[in-house]
Design a protein around this nucleic acid. Structure first.
Ligand SMILES: [Mn+2]
Ligand SMILES: [Mn+2]
Ligand SMILES: [Zn+2]
Ligand SMILES: [Zn+2]
Lengths: 168, 168
DNA sequence: AGCTAGTTGCGAATGAGACGCAACAACGAA
DNA sequence: TTCGTTGTTGCGTCTCATTCGCAACTAGCT
């Protein structure tokens, strides 16, 4: 039995199956709009925003609402089947440390802590990267839970984000 | 002449000097509100959002406007003296690839490309990290310019972001 | 076929940021 | 020190992504 390296379309099919299976397992109803959103998400190789997903879904199902797309995306996110880029979902956060350093991001409270590591600073990227363009800066983003959130038993999924804004 | 390891307050002073020097060099006026914002930024060890900075500045100068804080932050950002967290300044972007992988972020057009690297997947973080909490996931974010943006001579500073939304 | 709890679409609300503009005020020149 | 030029400020307004409330549906079980 030969096993070919999964190509894009094969991965897409797998992902779609994953979404529906997980939904069924979670007792979530498989509405036609959800199925279509699943198809679009399973097929994408990029990092779309909600509106891009909405547009793609509308091409096939013109009546889906913006809201349903958002709700489905966050639901999948809660199930750990889609991720979001960057540490903060809401407002822009600034960093006054412009030297080389890395980040520990707490998924519970949103706190971001710097850490330094000479090893990580000089990280070698795979050679194929040079064909993409020019890289100016490389940094590591480690996600997890800080001690406080661990003790508080806060969930990993960034749900109860009651804003740990600093500089109070 | 002894040279102690720069502590927080020393680094703060240095940073303040840097801000004012760079501003003067750029012909930017040193208004009292800017100076106060500089002080707050120079003193912070965290990753505040604009509102947190505004609150901190208001404690000393109750009349500063939200807008002035924004303008100053972006000005410093343009000068390369403050950074922002994460690849996207505006809307949330989703990632359907939940397996271990890393990102190439183009600062010109906003495109984010996946890349894989077994070496980077198993990255060892410095030991001190264990005292912060538990890390579930580690990924590398490499920022730069993609070939298209390099050829187009687009600036590194994410200015001309005329939205490269995919799934068109 | 009938129930019922989970969903949908919509119109309205929220909230971060950006903008336009008239009153102001740094700061180099005189 | 005074003045004039220009960059700045604060405010009211505007935009636009994301969220809410809710009444009208409907997937999925019986
Ligand atoms: Mn940082
Ligand atoms: Mn990705
Ligand atoms: Zn935390
Ligand atoms: Zn680009």
């Amino acid at each position: 039995m030969t096993r070919k390296k999964p190509d894009a379309s094969e991965a897409s099919t797998e992902r779609l199956a994953l979404y529906t299976a997980a939904s069924r397992a979670a007792g979530i109803r498989l509405t036609p709009q959800r199925l279509e959103i699943f198809r679009v998400l399973a097929a994408t190789e990029s990092h779309p925003d909600a509106e891009a997903v909405h547009r793609a879904v509308q091409r096939v199902m013109p009546t889906v609402s913006r809201d349903t797309v958002y709700r489905t995306l966050w639901r999948l996110h809660d199930m750990g089947l889609v991720a979001t880029l960057g540490p903060s979902r809401d407002r822009v956060r600034f960093d006054t440390n412009v030297g080389p350093h890395h980040h520990l991001v707490c998924l519970g409270c949103g706190l971001v802590q710097d850490f330094v590591s000479a090893t990580l600073d000089g990280l070698a990227l795979p050679p194929g990267v040079s064909q993409w363009g020019r890289v100016y800066d490389t940094q590591v983003e480690a996600r997890g839970l800080c001690l406080a959130c661990l003790k508080a038993g806060r969930a990993t999924r960034e749900t109860t984000q009651e804003k740990a804004s600093d500089e109070r």
